Computed example of a mutant assay.
Amino acid sequence: MARRLTQQDIARMAGVSQTTVSLVLNNRADSEVRISPETRQRVLRVIRETGYIADPAARRLAEGRNRILGVFTYEAVFPATSADFYHPFLVGIEECAEEVGCDLLLFTSARVTGQRRRIFNEDSRVRLADGCVLLGRTVDRDDLARLIADQIPFVSVGRRDDAGGPVPYVGADYVAATRALVERAARLGHRRLVYVGTGEGAESTADRFTGFQAAVTGLGVESVQVRPDRPGLLEAVRATGAGAAFFEEQADAVVFMQAAAEGGLAVPEDLSVVTLGSATRPVRTDTDFAGFLIPRREMGRRAVELLTKVLETGGTPQELLPCELIEGSTLIGR
Rank of each mutant, 00 (worst) to 15 (best):
Q318H: 07
I152G: 02
L90N: 05
F154A: 02
A259T: 12
T287M: 08
T308W: 01
F89H: 10
A186H: 14
P166V: 13
R118M: 08
E99F: 00
D55M: 07
A62F: 06
Q318M: 07
V16K: 11
S17A: 10
D207Q: 09
L144M: 04
G264D: 04
A29Y: 07
R284A: 10
A290Y: 03
M1H: 11
F247Y: 13
M1F: 10
V24R: 06
G15W: 10
L233M: 09
V24S: 05
L25T: 10
V167D: 00
R297Q: 12
R42L: 07
F89C: 04
L325I: 15
G243P: 01
R296A: 00
A177I: 08
E94F: 10
L219V: 09
T178W: 02
P79R: 11
G314P: 01
V91C: 04
G136N: 05
F247G: 03
L147C: 04
D55R: 06
E122M: 10
F292K: 01
L234V: 14
L276I: 09
D252Q: 14
A177C: 11
L233F: 12
G218K: 12
A186D: 04
A244D: 02
F89L: 07
F107N: 01
R187V: 08
K309V: 01
V126K: 00
I332H: 06
A185L: 08
V196K: 00
Q318E: 09
D150T: 12
G92R: 01
E319D: 13
F85Q: 03
V221E: 01
P56V: 03
V43Q: 00
